[in-house]
Amino acid sequence: MENSLDTALLIVGHGSTVNPFSSMPTLMHATTIRQRHIFADVACCFWKEEPSLRDALFFFRDPAIREVCVVPNFISEGYFTRTVIPRELELSGPETGRANGQVWKYCEPVGNHESMTGYLLERAREVAPGVPEREATLLIVAHGTSLNDNSAIAAKLQAEKIRQRGLYAAVLNLYMEEPPLISDWLNLTETRNVVVVPFFISDGLHSYEDIPVLLGLETAQARAESGAQEIQGRSLFYSTAIGTDSRFADVIIEQAMAQRKQVSQSVS
C-alpha cells in the first residue's frame, strides 16, 4: 500500500449516547489503520459521540497535511452521508478547499464497496453452517428511513447481487423503518431456514435490540453465539453486524485511496 504522508484520514461514524459498543468497530478500524502508518494522521468523529463532526473541523492542523480523506463508516448512502455529514463538516462536494489550503475529499461510504457482497455471504455461511443454501432464505436487513430514499439502496443492491448468484432459495432486503418491513418476515419468506445478516456497522442498539424484537426474538436469543432459534416452525439464524469484520479497515483505506485517485484523474 502506497504511503500518503501528506494525507490524513477521518473516519466518520454514527455512535450512540446510549449504547457503549456502537462506536467500537469504528475505533478499532482506526487503530488498525493507524498502526499501518499509511496516513499522516488518523482520527474518528461521530454524530452522537465525541469527538463530534463539528470538532473534526479543527483536526489535522499540521502544515504538512495537505489532504484529508473523509470516509463515512456507514453501510448505506442516505440521510447521514448526503445531508448530515456534508452539513456538519462543511463539505461542498467531492472536494472542499479550506482556508488553510487543505483539501478535504469526501469518499464513498464503506457499504458501497465491492467486497460487501462477499462479506455478507461469508457471514451468512458462518452463522448457519451446514444449512443448505438452496433450502434457505437470506435476509439482508438494514435501517431504511423516510428522510432520504437513498438510504435503502445499498442493501437492495447487495440483495440483488446475491440473488443473481442463485445460491439461496430467496434473498430479500428488509428494513426497520420502511417496507418491506423486517417485522413481516414470516409472511415474506417460505423456507424453513431463514438466515439474517444485519447490514449494519456495529452491534449497536439496532442489531442488538431493535431488530431481534422485530424478528420476534428475545434479545438474549439474538446474542447467542450460534445455532438456530425456532420461531413458529421456522429456524432463524441471526448473525452479528457485518461492520464488525476486521477487514473493514481495508475497505476504509480503499475507499480513501479510490477517492484520491478519482480526484487526481479528473484534475490531470
Binding site: C45, E49, E50, P51, S52, D55, A56, F58, F59, R61
Partner: peptide, 8 residues
C-alpha cells in the same frame, strides 16, 4: 475526544 485539537 477532540479537546486537544480545540485548544491547539
Amino acid at each position: 475526544p477532540g479537546r486537544l485539537a480545540a485548544f491547539f
